[in-house]
């Protein structure tokens, strides 16, 4: 596998990650969201491994493995259990309708490409073209957190945002030092547990997981 093939493969994977990010925006069913999220994690893991192989950085294999375990298996499983226990079967509700969201998303992607154009010209990494995708994934994750109403979907948005960051790290600098990545991976896991606990707390307090109910927490005028 030569370098130009690796770069092409990486571009394809980047495109797939971007596609899954749009998929997360468009998906109405909550289990569907989980599947797409797992898929995104899988593409991310493969992409990391490819970068690791082509750049000859073997610690990236460990990152890839971590991503595979955490983001494809463990986290979706935890969320699955959570959704099951909390009996959330409804369709996902959003603030803005889906076509509009997609249009905003496209604008964000174009904007990301515009932003990263100067970096692409300076960098000589094989992954340089994917930085725009990484940034777009971060923004789409944030957009998802903004437009969704339910707490669970917010978490998926947050995790997708983290995927984008991770992808940015591998594409821009061939990954962070291993220690940092291990730390981040552990943080994500712990965050998932904390979210789980909070969901139960939120539901017992407000009888719903709709974040609208939390509006009454603010100070009375």
């Amino acid at each position: 596998m030569n370098v130009s093939f690796a770069a092409q493969l990486n571009s394809v994977l980047a495109a797939l990650i971007l596609l899954t990010a749009f998929g997360l925006l468009a998906q109405r069913r909550i289990y569907g969201l989980l599947h797409i999220f797992a898929l995104q994690g899988f593409f991310l893991s493969v992409s990391t491994a490819v970068v690791g192989y082509s750049a000859g950085l073997h610690h990236l294999y460990i990152s890839a493995l971590l991503t595979l375990t955490l983001k494809v298996i463990v986290l979706p499983y935890i969320l699955y259990v959570l959704i099951h226990r909390l009996r959330i079967h409804k369709e996902v509700e959003e603030v803005v309708n889906i076509p509009t969201t997609m249009l905003i998303g496209i604008a964000l992607v174009i904007y990301s490409y515009h932003l990263t154009a100067p970096i692409r010209e300076l960098s000589d990494f094989i992954t340089r073209s994917t930085l725009a995708v990484a940034l777009a994934t971060v923004m789409l994750g944030l957009l998802m957190m903004i437009i969704r109403k339910k707490a669970v979907t917010q978490i998926i948005g947050f995790l997708a945002l983290e995927n984008g960051l991770f992808f940015a790290a591998t594409s821009a600098t061939y990954g962070m030092p291993l220690v940092v990545e291990l730390g981040v991976a552990l943080d994500i896991l712990i965050a998932a547990f904390i979210f789980g606990i909070f969901f139960f707390q939120i539901r017992t307090t407000f009888d719903t997981l709709d974040l609208k109910a939390m509006e009454k927490l603010k100070e009375e005028e």
Binding site: M145, I146, R148, L211, E215, L217, K218
Partner: peptide, 9 residues
């Protein structure tokens, strides 16, 4: 300050 997470985000 609306108390809505989405707005803060």
């Amino acid at each position: 300050q609306h108390g809505r997470i989405q707005i803060y985000l």
